[in-house]
Amino acid sequence: MGHLFRAELRKVGATPVTWWLLVSTVAVGVLGTIAPLIAADGESTDLLSDHRIREALHGAAGGAILVLVAGVIGMAGEWRFGQASQVFLSTPRRSRVVGVKTVVYLGLGALYGLVAALAATATAWGWYRARGLALPLERSAVWLTLIGCVAVAALFGVIGVAVGAIVRRPVPALVGALTWTVLVEPALFAAAPSVFRWLPGVASLSLRRQPAEHLLPVGSACAVLLGLVTVALVVGVRQVERDDVTG
């Protein structure tokens, strides 16, 4: 397993899209933090309230969607250029391949989340400082939001791997995952919050402390996400183990 783990790290590190997505994570983290602060600029609200701080630092959540993309590409992309054959020639026990990718993208997700959190914190710190305020880093609203964003990014990396293992065609997998996360879930939640708060994307809002009503408690949201990730991974491993590699 150690060999396979090192090989996966080498592959991920040498793949340009990994680094492009990481750079994009910084950009999304900065923009996602500035946008709510700009929106709040003309309002007479307290920039130092927990609500406003959470809203601003929530920009770090941008890392999650990008690591979802990285996970899907990392798994389903193996079938795009015939790499899957080479991978399984080296490691015929395919569940090990999915297992190693799960660990690698969990870690990569945490890295993306951490980078996004740092970008969001630095941006918010600069914004507050420009207005003669100090971002209260000691406040739980700050670090619980940031920790939540990092945790969600890590889990979304694993979700990406699971979706990639189930679909194994990068474009449909990406389009499906992004459409579901960015469009379908928010629409369903807006239509019936009490019903659709159990969906994974909505549950992640609670974990990363987005200020919104009707969300699950953090513990429940965490359990929902972990449960869904586990089920998706089991299905993905079964698919990869069972299906023939014909191209």
């Binding site: 060999h3 396979l4 090192r6 090989a7 996966e8 080498r10 592959k11 040498a14 793949t15 340009p16 899209v17 992309g77 250029f81 015939g82 790499q83 899957a84 054959s85 080479q86 991978v87 020639l89 080296s90 490691t91 191209g247």
Partner: peptide, 23 residues
């Protein structure tokens, strides 16, 4: 089987290094 099975963004050395490491 079906060509080298390499990611087009990887160099030849990287591709072979990944295989060698995994094996």
């Amino acid at each position: 089987v079906d060509g080298p099975g390499a990611h087009p963004g990887h160099s030849a050395r990287t591709h072979l290094s990944v295989i060698a490491t995994a094996a």
